[in-house]
Computed example of a mutant assay.
Amino acid sequence: GLPSADLPRLRDLTHDQVFTQELLPSASQLALSDTATAELRSYFTDLVHQRRARPGDDPVSRWIATWDAMEPDRDKADEGVYFLALFVLLAALETTANMLSTTVLLLVEHPEWWEKLAADPGLVPGFVEEALRYDAPTHVISRVAAADCLLDGVEIRKDEMVHLMVGAAHRDPARHSDPDRFDPLRTPGHLAFSGGIHYCLGAPLARMEAHVLLRQLVGRLPRLALAHPPSWAPRVAFRRLLNLDVTLA
Score class of each variant (00 low, 15 high):
136 A>G: 08
140 V>R: 06
140 V>C: 05
141 I>F: 14
141 I>R: 13
142 S>D: 15
143 R>H: 04
143 R>Q: 11
145 A>S: 03
146 A>H: 08
147 A>H: 11
148 D>N: 08
148 D>Y: 03
149 C>Y: 01
149 C>A: 15
149 C>M: 14
150 L>P: 08
150 L>G: 10
150 L>D: 13
152 D>W: 08
153 G>Y: 12
153 G>S: 09
154 V>K: 10
157 R>H: 07
159 D>S: 10
161 M>G: 12
162 V>Y: 00
162 V>A: 00
163 H>D: 13
163 H>M: 12
163 H>Q: 14
164 L>Q: 04
166 V>N: 05
166 V>I: 13
168 A>Q: 10
168 A>W: 07
169 A>L: 05
170 H>Y: 03
171 R>D: 12
171 R>Y: 10
173 P>M: 11
174 A>W: 13
175 R>C: 13
176 H>E: 03
177 S>G: 09
179 P>W: 12
179 P>Q: 12
181 R>G: 03
181 R>N: 04
181 R>T: 12
181 R>L: 09
182 F>T: 03
182 F>K: 02
184 P>A: 04
184 P>R: 06
185 L>T: 15
186 R>V: 02
186 R>I: 04
187 T>I: 02
187 T>P: 01
192 A>Y: 05
194 S>A: 10
195 G>K: 05
196 G>N: 01
197 I>C: 00
197 I>R: 09
197 I>T: 07
198 H>N: 03
198 H>D: 01
203 A>M: 05
203 A>N: 01
204 P>S: 05
205 L>V: 08
205 L>N: 02
206 A>W: 00
208 M>N: 08
209 E>T: 11
210 A>T: 01
211 H>A: 09
212 V>I: 12
213 L>N: 06
217 L>V: 00
218 V>I: 13
218 V>G: 11
218 V>P: 04
219 G>L: 06
219 G>D: 10
219 G>E: 09
220 R>Y: 07
222 P>Q: 02
223 R>F: 05
224 L>C: 13
224 L>F: 11
224 L>G: 01
225 A>Q: 03
225 A>E: 14
226 L>W: 13
227 A>S: 14
228 H>R: 14
228 H>I: 05
229 P>E: 03
230 P>Y: 09
230 P>D: 13
231 S>T: 15
232 W>D: 09
234 P>S: 14
234 P>M: 14
234 P>L: 11
236 V>S: 14
237 A>P: 07
237 A>R: 06
238 F>C: 10
238 F>Q: 04
238 F>R: 00
238 F>N: 06
240 R>C: 15
243 N>P: 14
243 N>M: 15
244 L>R: 10
245 D>T: 02
